[in-house]
Design a protein around this nucleic acid. Sequence first.
DNA 1: CTGAAAGCGCTTACAG
DNA 2: CTGAAAGCGCTTACAG
Lengths: 312, 312
Amino acid sequence: MSAPPARAATIVDVARAAGVSRQTVTRALHDMPGINPATRERVLAAARELRYHPSRFGRGLVKPAARTLGLVVGDLANPYYGELASAVLALAAARGWHVVMAEPASAADLAAGADAVVAFTGTAFPDPAVGAPNLPVVEIDPPHPHPRRARVAFERATASAQAVDHLLARGSLRPVVLDSTTPPGGSSRAAAFVEAFRARGVEPHLAHRTSSFSQLPPGTDAVVAFNDLDGLRLLRELHEAHRAVPREVRVVGVDGLAVGEFTTPRLSTLAIDLAEVARAALDLVVELTDAAPGAPPPVRVLAHVFRAREST
Amino acid sequence: MSAPPARAATIVDVARAAGVSRQTVTRALHDMPGINPATRERVLAAARELRYHPSRFGRGLVKPAARTLGLVVGDLANPYYGELASAVLALAAARGWHVVMAEPASAADLAAGADAVVAFTGTAFPDPAVGAPNLPVVEIDPPHPHPRRARVAFERATASAQAVDHLLARGSLRPVVLDSTTPPGGSSRAAAFVEAFRARGVEPHLAHRTSSFSQLPPGTDAVVAFNDLDGLRLLRELHEAHRAVPREVRVVGVDGLAVGEFTTPRLSTLAIDLAEVARAALDLVVELTDAAPGAPPPVRVLAHVFRAREST
DNA sequence: CTGAAAGCGCTTACAG
DNA sequence: CTGAAAGCGCTTACAG
């Protein structure tokens, strides 16, 4: 009967429709005592009719609101980021925080909707939009430290060295390290492996992560994949090419994906406790928020662990 | 020097610290024209010193704000939900919406922070908290239709029948259907398979999804797993028990996980296009919001597809 | 170039 | 049991 509303209904619209004042609407909506049941029904009916939904902003301004954390992760379709996000969600809920998520492409947009941001993308988090300086940002494993952002740094040297020792001890002397950068070797995960090989007198071949095994140098007897998903792809390719893993070729992934436990062979990998990463990130949000203005941003270092499974 | 602030700094605090008015602070913060550069610097410095970050609520009240979608998914560590979430995030960003995420356990809390909710959990979405009736809710594949919620329904009968025909044609006549409910057979995904088997004169054995293969009836020659992750686990167990797949035992999963392409053997599965599911859900949010008060909630039906890979 | 006023939608005291 | 007033933090016209 009524024309479609140009804007969403407000509490005043409901009050007018029900013939009461705004505070009576609030009372009805929040099931507060001291309201005539008949009045309440009338208000609720009007609210339903108008599809009234209270404005988050009006309410947030006047009631202590949940802190809202912005979370930016690489790609949720990769279970690695999914696990991290899942851990952050659980921890945030336990603290009563809300979590706004965004893909890296629209990360800058988060500044408007979050009180702080945790970013885990493999690249640098873009500077927040104009109008939102001083947004506390925590980066997980960023390519470069930032002078005003807290960060969770990954320690890879130890685990990479263990993996390399493991490979060498089993006779793999012609290793390839796969990487996402051009030229390959620029990412910290690849760099840690390259360094470990060199420290032991072995010069690994470098190639892009998208290389198939057939494109690698003949004689290749070990491959360090860029991540576990790539490692699984490689395992599949080697199976189809009738190359025995680990006898002829050894494969190491990075990430510690649970699904690497269910393949044949199980994928050896560099793992990190993502629940711990999540906890460190949330702790840093608090620390950074409370830090003195000039103080250097806090840092947490978390180490990878080499998990030898069957592919090595 | 100054005592720690009891509350976050507001624009008035910054104005006072810089010795200007509130609108001058706004001007400096938003890089607006018509402000003395020296004044701007002074304001920005004060803002930094006070760690001032504008309130989302104050701003949201006065500027047209992004719509915020609440998204509740089962478990992000499962790439199935991760893929869906990833698709929703991308689509939402394209429309300029924000996305607040929560785990099912804290889903009710979303009512305070979202303008609408999309829920995909395998169970019924809890009724939103008091004070937020009329919150538009879109459920994906809910166990039961809800009188006021829109929903994306999954059509499983066709694909399940195809999978069953495929199994039967290859001689698997003693199938087991695994399920998450107690007793098993209560979930819609399991029910669709059971029905298809019965329609063809075969009575499948039912067991709980956590059953290991060794606990299934002797002679079992086909297993319908509850989901792909379970299917991969089963594949691994069969490999260790030296049972040939698919020759002795055929395995079907449900979800269409990408990782099922990289295992050996590749996992046959019932897949659904999650990008399409995401699009349907977001479209329903809009439809539901615009719908007439009394109108029945809109519904979209999306069908699974049987993807025969190597495990059958 | 800068400030005083009005108003966004809500809830919380306080009157009646 | 119900309503008038004040105020949360911000931006947008409008004066000066």
